[in-house]
Amino acid sequence: MENFDYLAPRSLTEAYAALGSGRTSLMLAGGTDVIVQLREGRKQCDQLIDLKHIPELMSYGFAADGTLEIGAAVPLAQLYEDPEVRRRQPALCDAATIIGGTAIQSRATLGGNLCNASPAADSSPALIALGALLVIGSDRGTGEVPVEAFFAGPGRSSLQPGEILLQVRIPALGAREGAYYHRFIPRNEMDIAVASAGVRIGLDESDRIVSARVALGAVAATPLFVPSAAEALIGQPATRETFEKAGAAAAAAATPITDMRGSAAQRKHLVSVLTVRALERALERIREAR
């Protein structure tokens, strides 16, 4: 590990100024990925900018319209320990509770998980399915981008030099909407997704699916938004048969590789299994909420 400076700006203004200094920067939102990468020599920097001292990035709450607004450096444990977050956004907690262990979750963040841009990250498919938006800031102002447009490749986000991911905005679920995220791992803990699926569906009064979003993890170069799976669902009754068609569409969209975590054939197969199971559990959540 080479020497680098550690900076802990107290405001966004200070953080933007540090980013504009011309030195190579990395940002630390939780550090559970970036510190390991620095130690192993997989990343280098002149300065490491700790975002955990910037108040806007360390707070979260529900807006008037029900949108959950989460600062990029809020620890995952803080989110899933909040009963209101668990009640109103259970699919977010599906992901937040399985990213690392308890100790990791007290440091790790949505901002860090997203910016690390792993194709296998657990938060990404969940947030894509939930239709979340990301607020990106720089000294020139702020803008919004859907999560599915945030990734450029393995380990690469669309963040430009000088930009910081500030906030994750998750729209409220309607009364007849449900969401679910899960992954497949060979063990029961301490593992990275071999494949994963996040879904959100909305039903009309006759249990016909009127809205749907499906996203996958670990089966492409980036987390994958799958509109074709949603198309297979919308307008159809919420049945196993419908779900299996969505599963098949999801599998068809996946472009996995074979590596030490699993084979391409296994992952395609799992995508279909996981999508169907996620849809069934999202449906259960809608029914339980009634």
């Binding site: 063990r187 029961n188 301490m190 990275i192 590596d259 030490m260």
Partner: peptide, 16 residues
């Protein structure tokens, strides 16, 4: 060796 870590060299955990 593509899995030279305890993350990817999958020894059983207490939950397994």
């Amino acid at each position: 060796l593509a899995n030279a870590s305890f993350l990817d060299y999958r020894m059983p955990t207490t939950l397994d």
